[in-house]
């Protein structure tokens, strides 16, 4: 039986999490953060900061990548889920949308969505209602139900990946870089959808490299770097924070340099 921590508030709590991979080295040290029920919380940080590893540790996917939780605990609504199997975590109400729109390419859109219902009890009416709700949210998927997911556009695949996770009827939805590699118009639509999902009562943990986007829709945010939480605070404050600007502009600076290099090469 999971231990019940009555002091923990509803939502996700990560406490002192230290994570490494068998291939060597720690990727997270003493990471603590909370995602209160009903909120959108953003986790931002540069590439290699440990964002995806943190999500894997929370959602039970770490084992599949030869990762190990050395220390710390994770609770969802007060129940310990530290090191639990992915299927157990999904049953507890946490669904993760993997980075990079990982749909099942050879299954149809309908089948992709139905995989999400795999863990549900055989409650057909409830499953049907959820299915319809998701199609209302992502109208474009309704016209593509019989099509193979591998043939969808990037934006459509991202929506399918989110819809598929919603089919498990999660209380907490975890999104790993949903804006990655998508056109600005699609990114706008996805952030609207995330807000709509949250408005219906689902808690959201949004992991992004795009800090400005994340802090615009989140209530609270954390900055992760080098496997540690550097700081956290209300998203509105972080959006104007110099330190965040430093990270964010750091990214800009990099691309600026790249642009200059490209210009030099093509100028020759």
């Amino acid at each position: 039986m999971p231990e019940k921590d009555v002091s923990a508030a509803a939502g996700l709590a990560v406490d002192g999490l230290t994570v490494g991979y068998r291939t060597g080295g720690l990727v997270l040290s003493e990471v603590s953060l909370t995602v209160p029920a009903g909120q959108i919380v953003a986790l931002v940080g540069p590439n290699g900061a440990g964002k995806t590893s943190l999500l894997r540790a929370v959602s039970g996917l770490l084992k599949a990548h030869q990762g190990v939780i050395h220390k710390g605990r994770v609770t969802l609504d007060g129940d310990a889920i530290t090191g639990a199997d992915a299927s157990a975590v999904v049953r507890r109400g946490l669904a993760q949308v993997l980075e990079g729109r990982q749909v099942f390419p050879n299954l149809t859109v309908r089948e992709n969505l139905l995989t999400g219902a795999h863990t549900l009890r055989r409650d057909d009416s409830r499953r049907h209602a959820t299915f319809e709700e998701i199609l209302d949210l992502f109208g474009v998927l309704r016209q593509r139900l019989g099509q193979r997911a591998g043939f969808l556009s990037g934006g459509e695949q991202q929506m399918l990946a989110i819809g598929r996770a919603l089919m498990t009827q999660p209380r907490l939805l975890v999104l790993d870089e949903p804006s990655l590699g998508l056109a600005p118009r699609i990114v706008e639509e996805i952030s609207r959808v995330v807000q709509a999902i949250n408005a219906k009562g689902t808690t959201v943990l949004l992991v992004e490299q795009n800090a400005l986007l994340a802090f615009r829709i989140a209530e609270y945010g954390y900055v992760l770097e080098g496997g540690r939480v550097m700081f956290g605070g209300p998203a509105a404050e972080l959006a104007g924070d110099e330190r965040v600007a430093h990270y964010y502009l750091g990214g800009q600076d990099m691309s600026g340099r790249r642009a200059r290099r490209t210009a030099e090469r093509t100028g020759r």
């Binding site: 599949a64 299927s87 993997l98 990982q102």
Partner: peptide, 10 residues
């Protein structure tokens, strides 16, 4: 089709 996505779907 996709091992990790299947895990993530529970």
């Amino acid at each position: 089709d996709h091992h990790e996505a299947a895990l993530a779907q529970g």
